[in-house]
Amino acid sequence: MGDFLLVTIQVDMHDRLAITLQEDLTERIVNDRTRGVLIDISALDIVDSFIGRTLGNIASMSRILDAETVVVGMQPSVAITLVELGLSLPGIRTALNVDRGMDLLRESLERG
């Protein structure tokens, strides 16, 4: 996978798990000198404000550590609900699927 880290979330995320993910990821970014993180949430059937905030935190922290985060595969029903909830996750880059997410990361790495 080279410089990128791919995280696929496949379980119903409870709050502690979300925090653990956040901690593990930042550690891996530093240790592996990762330049890009893909978080695949296509298996998640809901994203509530806590999970949304965790994703936002991961994105901002990885930015500080000089890595880009792209969240991929959000389901339409989840996206509609998040918008209604009032969470538009402005700081997070998104892509339709893992392949598109990789393209996005490569482009932004080439650019700078």
């Binding site: 389901q75 538009s88 998104t94 997410g101």
Partner: peptide, 12 residues
């Protein structure tokens, strides 16, 4: 507007 926002969340 909500549709545009939701599409963005999905990566479109």
């Amino acid at each position: 507007l909500k549709t545009v926002a939701a599409a963005r969340l999905m990566g479109a």
